[in-house]
Simulated assay, not measured.
Amino acid sequence: MFSRTFARSLTHTRPSASLSRACLFYTTEAAPATPQLLVRIKADVKDAMRSRDKERLAVVKGILSDLTYLEKSPQAPAQVTDSVIQILVQKSIKRRQESVQSFQSAGRADQAAQELKEIEMLKVYLPQAMTEQEIEDEVRRVVKEQGATGPKDLGKVMKELGSLDPAKAPKKTVSELVKKVLGSL
Rank of each mutant, 00 (worst) to 15 (best):
Q86S: 02
I87L: 13
I87W: 00
I87C: 07
I87A: 04
L88Y: 03
V89N: 03
V89I: 10
Q90S: 10
K91G: 07
K91Y: 05
S92W: 00
S92E: 10
K94N: 01
K94W: 05
R96V: 01
R96P: 00
Q97R: 13
Q97D: 04
Q97S: 04
Q97H: 06
E98C: 02
E98N: 09
S99E: 06
V100G: 11
V100M: 04
V100N: 08
Q101L: 13
Q101Y: 05
S102K: 15
S102C: 03
Q104F: 02
S105R: 13
S105E: 10
S105M: 10
G107S: 12
R108A: 08
A109R: 15
A109Y: 11
D110I: 07
Q111D: 14
Q111Y: 06
A112Y: 11
A113V: 06
Q114W: 00
Q114R: 13
E115K: 15
L116I: 04
K117F: 09
K117P: 00
K117D: 12
L122N: 04
K123E: 15
K123Q: 15
Y125P: 11
L126Y: 09
L126A: 12
L126R: 14
Q128M: 13
Q128L: 13
A129S: 15
M130D: 15
T131L: 07
E134M: 10
E134T: 05
I135K: 06
I135L: 04
I135H: 05
E136C: 05
E136Y: 01
D137H: 06
D137Q: 11
R140E: 12
R140A: 08
R140S: 03
R141G: 01
R141P: 00
V143A: 02
E145V: 07
Q146E: 14
Q146I: 10
A148Y: 06
T149F: 02
T149D: 13
P151G: 13
K152H: 08
K152F: 03
D153G: 11
D153T: 11
L154V: 09
G155T: 08
G155V: 05
V157W: 02
V157E: 01
